[in-house]
Structure formats: structure tokens, C-alpha cells
């Protein structure tokens, strides 16, 4: 069983402290976990700290996975190299090591991930010809082609249309379920979170202020504290929890 736990994790950019004392109980693999928080709350910093791109105090504890089993997908989607989609995914697979030759198994892995994320038709297209949403899907395929056991994705659906958001989150949920991987997504759309993510971590003031089953974390009180927004949770006609926004709550929100 793969899990990820944080013990008093900190990180700073220069002299500015972004994270201090971020602690959470082990997040288990097999489902999607959301990381929510206001802009500049430190979501990307936390991801980069977990991925080892930033140093700082505290312990990132991985169970059932080695550091090289972890993949972090940054938010930026600016890919302009003269490469086809297919080549760019091969490239991601080959960073793990191996020579210039490609085995049939490696090509099969590339084909598989392209199918999973609805990119099969784009395989031979050049990266610069893609739309923003298509690039985002390609970068998800790049992140998952090596079958990482721990996946951190920074707003993986921000450039996608409504249907693709649904489709990609569903594909990510299936990936987590099939591989038992820990998949943590930084998301802004709380309706997506409620629909797709079993557990949620709430980040504010450089700390994790709540963690647990999504509906227990995303209470109207917590949403007001995180975003300064009054809201309530209702059910859609198919039974999914939905957040209805009533308006600004008029109280200072957590930074």
C-alpha cells in the first residue's frame, strides 16, 4: 500500500517563508486527493517541496514508493519544441534511464497512456500546433507514462473544457484505483473536488489546516475560512454533492 505523510514540513523562497510546519497523517493511494487553498497559499510550493525541488525542514514520508516513483506536474503548459505528441511522451518515459533504443514494451506504454487520456488521435501532431487544453492533456500523459506511484499535479484541468475536465478526472481516478498510486491534485474548482476526490487537504497560512474525507473537510465554515465565500452543499439530480456559492462572506479569509 502506497502512502504519503508530512511531518512539520517547511519551505521558503529566499527569506520569505511559504510553508511552515505542514503536517498530515498518511494519505493512502488508490483514490484521488485534492489539495485546496487560496491563491498563493503555498500549494505549488508544497508540491515542489515534496518532489524534492525545494529544500526545507521536516520529513516527507513515503511508504511503498521510492523518491524516483514520484512525479510532479507543474502548472505551466508552454511546450513549443519541434516534437510530436508521441515523441514528447517517449521523452518523459526515457528520463528514467535507458539508452537510445526503444523497446516494444516502452512503445506499448506510450500507446496505452495516450489512449487512456484520449490523445490517440493527436499522437502524430506537433506540440506547437496543439491548443492549451490539448497541451495540458499531453502533459498529464507525460507525467503518468512511467506509472509513478506518487503523483502531484498542479491544476491539471485548468485549461480543459467541461467535458474534458470530467473525462480527465475520471481517467485519473481510474489510474489511482488500478495502480494504487497516491494522486494529489491542486484544484480550484470545488465542485470538481467534491465530484472526483475522495479525500481533501486544505492549505492555509503555510499549514495543512484540515485533512480527511472531502465532504467532512469542505464544510461551509471551512470554505468561508479558506476563500471568504458563503456557500452551501447540495446534491445534483444524480446525487453528486455540489457547492452553491451565495456570495462573499465579508470576513477576513485565511491567507
Amino acid at each position: 500500500m502506497v502512502s504519503l505523510a508530512l511531518e512539520q514540513v517547511g519551505a521558503r523562497y529566499g527569506r520569505r517563508e511559504i510553508l511552515s510546519d505542514a503536517t498530515c497523517a498518511p494519505v493512502a493511494g488508490g483514490g484521488l486527493t485534492a489539495l485546496v487553498g487560496a491563491n498563493a497559499a503555498g500549494k505549488s510550493t508544497l508540491f515542489r517541496r515534496i518532489a524534492g525541488q525545494l529544500r526545507g525542514p521536516g520529513i516527507v514520508r513515503l511508504e511503498g514508493a521510492a523518491p524516483h516513483d514520484l512525479r510532479y506536474m507543474p502548472q505551466d503548459t508552454g511546450m513549443s519544441a519541434a516534437l510530436t505528441v508521441y515523441e514528447s511522451v517517449i521523452l518523459a518515459l526515457k528520463q528514467g534511464g535507458g539508452g537510445w533504443r526503444l523497446s516494444a514494451a516502452e512503445l506499448a506504454a506510450v500507446d496505452d497512456v495516450l489512449h487512456r487520456f484520449g490523445l490517440a488521435d493527436l499522437a502524430q501532431r506537433q506540440l506547437p500546433e496543439l491548443s492549451g487544453g490539448q497541451r495540458q492533456s499531453v502533459s498529464i500523459a507525460q507525467t503518468l507514462v512511467s506509472q509513478p506511484k506518487v503523483v502531484l499535479m498542479d491544476e491539471p484541468t485548468s485549461a480543459l473544457d467541461l467535458f474534458r475536465q470530467y473525462e480527465i478526472l475520471e481517467a485519473l481516478r481510474r489510474y489511482a484505483e488500478e495502480t494504487g498510486a497516491v494522486v494529489i491534485l491542486a484544484l480550484h474548482d470545488l465542485n470538481q473536488v467534491m465530484r472526483a476526490c475522495a479525500t481533501t487537504l486544505a492549505l492555509a497560512e503555510g499549514r495543512i489546516i484540515a485533512a480527511g474525507p472531502t465532504l467532512e473537510v469542505l464544510t461551509p465554515e471551512m470554505i468561508s475560512r479558506l476563500y471568504g465565500i458563503d456557500s452551501r452543499v447540495e446534491r445534483c439530480s444524480r446525487g453528486c454533492p455540489m457547492m452553491i456559492v451565495d456570495g462573499p462572506s465579508g470576513q477576513a479569509r485565511a491567507g
Binding site: 518532489a51 512525479r71 511546450m79 513549443s80 516534437l83 518523459a92
Partner: peptide, 16 residues
């Protein structure tokens, strides 16, 4: 492979 990856952008290459 690493040099090719750099062309996808610094952040993405670092993430790889």
C-alpha cells in the same frame, strides 16, 4: 534525452 526535455521548458524538464 535530458537535452530534448529541456526544450519542453525548464519547469517541465525539472519535473521530469
Amino acid at each position: 534525452w535530458a537535452l530534448t526535455a529541456i526544450r519542453l521548458g525548464e519547469a517541465r524538464a525539472a519535473a521530469m
